[in-house]
């Protein structure tokens, strides 16, 4: 099974299959080897599946040299150790959602947490269809033809114009919020 191709072409179905395939073994392993509770093991496992997905989509993982379970366990191990370390150091749970925290940590030297949380909030404010259109183009890296078909637009020119307008609207919302924060 070419999991990378499957994730790129049918992400939701691929994630469901990976989840079913690895869930039991990975959760038992997290409990046995790291002493995590079922609840914590489940949290770590779910986040690890999403990070696997992100690694494929951002191009960090282009070829799978090991079994999908082994790769997933590698991510889960780091996440479990991170969880145990933060408990040991009594670090208070972060105010941001878990995946936001993951992206913050990756960008901490380049982008401020406040900028990222404002961008996230602006995107929610923007809403659909703009939000989905931009995500399909920027994150899923789909072609204009694919997006045109998914979004049901007339042709690729319409999609291109729509994408440009959506991006402008998003940036306006973002600038407004960030300026407000700066003036406070």
């Amino acid at each position: 099974m070419d999991w990378i191709l499957k994730i790129k072409t049918d992400d939701n179905q691929a994630l469901r299959e990976i989840y079913d395939l690895c869930r039991e073994e990975c959760i038992a392993w997290l409990q046995n080897d790291f002493g995590l509770s079922v609840h914590d093991a489940l949290d770590v496992f779910q986040v690890s599946v999403v990070i696997l997905y992100d690694n494929v989509m951002t191009g960090k993982l282009s070829t799978l040299t090991s079994n999908i379970k082994t790769y997933l366990k590698g991510i889960a191990k780091n996440k479990a150790l991170e969880m145990l370390r933060s408990r040991k150091n009594r670090i208070i749970a972060n105010k941001y959602p878990v995946m936001a925290q993951y992206v913050f940590e990756e960008n901490e030297k380049v982008i401020f947490e406040e900028q990222l949380s404002t961008a996230l909030m602006s995107l929610e404010f923007l809403g659909d269809p703009c939000k989905s259109l931009l995500q399909l183009y920027y994150y899923n890296d789909l072609s204009m033809e694919n997006i045109t078909s998914i979004m049901g637009y007339k042709n690729t020119d319409t999609t291109k114009n729509q994408k440009y307008k959506c991006l402008k609207r998003l940036q306006n919302i973002y600038s407004e919020h960030i300026n407000k924060i700066a003036s406070n």
Partner: peptide, 9 residues
């Protein structure tokens, strides 16, 4: 920043 925001979402 906006692209990273989309990624988080």
């Amino acid at each position: 920043v906006l692209l990273e925001g989309m990624r988080i979402s």
